[in-house]
Design a protein around this nucleic acid. Sequence first.
DNA 1: TTGTAAGCGTTATCAA
DNA 2: TTGATAACGCTTACAA
Lengths: 360, 360
Amino acid sequence: MGMVTIRDVARHAGVSVATVSRVINKSGTVSDDLSQRVQHAISALGFEPDFLARTWRTRVTRTVAAVISDNTAPHHGIVLREAANVALAHDYNLILCTTFHDSETEHRYLRMLRRRRVDGVLLNSVGDCRSDVRALSEAGVPVVLLNRPLADYGPLVDAVLVDSYRGTFDAISHLVGLGHRRIAMVYSRLHDFLKHERLRGYRDALHAHNIPYDERLVYCSDQPHETAVLSMSQILTLSPRPSAIYAASYDCALTMMGLLQAEGLRIPDDIAFVMFDDVAWAQFINPPLTLVQNPAQELGRVAMELLFARLADRQRPPQEIYLQPELVVRRSCGSGRQDARRGLYPARAERTVSRVATKE
Amino acid sequence: MGMVTIRDVARHAGVSVATVSRVINKSGTVSDDLSQRVQHAISALGFEPDFLARTWRTRVTRTVAAVISDNTAPHHGIVLREAANVALAHDYNLILCTTFHDSETEHRYLRMLRRRRVDGVLLNSVGDCRSDVRALSEAGVPVVLLNRPLADYGPLVDAVLVDSYRGTFDAISHLVGLGHRRIAMVYSRLHDFLKHERLRGYRDALHAHNIPYDERLVYCSDQPHETAVLSMSQILTLSPRPSAIYAASYDCALTMMGLLQAEGLRIPDDIAFVMFDDVAWAQFINPPLTLVQNPAQELGRVAMELLFARLADRQRPPQEIYLQPELVVRRSCGSGRQDARRGLYPARAERTVSRVATKE
DNA sequence: TTGTAAGCGTTATCAA
DNA sequence: TTGATAACGCTTACAA
């Protein structure tokens, strides 16, 4: 079963290979007559253009990549799913690169992707990968940053972010509205930028409500779950004990829940609990969890669309799109004064109408 | 910045392109002297072999694909992560294909992958994709089936499965040991094979304990969560109400938990609850969930290793590997007679020492 | 509108 | 051990 080439088709149809190519790619102009004959020959011989040869010739791989720290985090899983869906709609394939929070692995992947000449990259970076991103940019490969601000990366780099600051501000304000004044914050395994933003949201929210910042209430660990547990538990031994916990990410929310359970602390009776990020099961457990809904679906979709938009117009100035998270109140903070004011932060725009900021 | 080719290197080193190629690929034999000169030229010019050209010439893409119904299901997320990790170790890239439980999408992906000449495919099929798999096989692309039995697909197809039957048998036996006799089973969005296996496990376990099978206690829905809720709720209106629920998959476990919550039924006081599949949060919620631990990590790793083994030896007869799940007892079934016998099914082998069955 | 032919960068065959 | 050169299948000037 030798492979059927464009030459075979040309011979069978009695035309030149150029004509066949033109028919396949609907490029140039071909008379109806010849076009018909070529079509026939193609189906008669069962010809399929060799994807590899075409890719090599045209230098377009119809492949994009998503570089993600951990695809099993629910948030990232959804981002990935949506991104894959958009890619599929464009007849592109998606390469999954899980970096496992390791910047060496990230570097390795980014190099691989450049050599492979993928058409674009979605990047949820772990470490400092300026040079890799710039190399991609120079090689003409556009990059969309996920939840990372647009720095001086290059002309082909865009970004889409969830407003961590505001999400956190709202969550803390909600707790304050419920009467809490000793609110602990725990976070882990987040990129510096997100840490900074969420911590800033925490501090500003406290400040806005005239609650002094107490550093003993803030705990950050980048250790994996198992070792984090021990050190994180100290926050519960403080006296007086914090009356509420804000878990700034999925990872440490799990850790914290385990900890509360181990200590026999019940949510919300003994302690209130809010987390950033969204999880499908939050509404099904007891008590249902109040959380800051991270618009992962939108993030994935918008990011990939931005990438294709960039592919279509490489001249457009870099864009930075902000998505708004939403506080979903359920029962893990108690029912105190449910409808207390939601903070001093100005009312947000509609969530689906994302705030779009164009930089530069 | 024109591209540096192998020809430039050859010229710079004063050798032929063939020699450069030999040095790059460590193929053939090159004297130390020339090898040195070539190495120098390579680093002096910053030459990087063109991946696309090489791919086209050699027809090996160093790319594998994972076709998965839904990457956001925790189980699949882990499989994917482990598979990606093994691929990375071999310097391969992984294409993610999420089929969204749609066999048309699956078909489309499988065709794409064949045309792309990926080196191998991991497949968690939705529909009947015999012809696609056979086409891959004929094109020389090995496939590893995930949780699907080895049928007459072709010579290059292997399979790795989790023993659903036994996992279910154990779960039901556990409930029976705790004194339950009215055990409901719900399942959804599973491949027919898994449905069949889990239902068989359920029936056999009941039978082994002389409990009659009551079809009203078994509910299957392939509708998405929202619509499934209503119909699934009927199982709770039975009188007498079942005293235990076995949720045969992650999807419907969530649905069921929501339902129980809505009905104000507490786990385990009002009703016992076990599920198949593993989730990170099971141990952190109240009550911690008893479940059949699905060895997703092992599944992903073994599957990808099997694929590479096949790539290394295409003659080896097709293999079907079974992995054993493990019942993890926590508190969602109550503490009844905790250490009751765990069923009549013969003791299992060590979990990590997987039962390996070679077919044909 | 159609055909001819020149690449694209690499690997691999064959002869030296 | 090394070098010259022919593929590989397609796209795309350029010529007709």
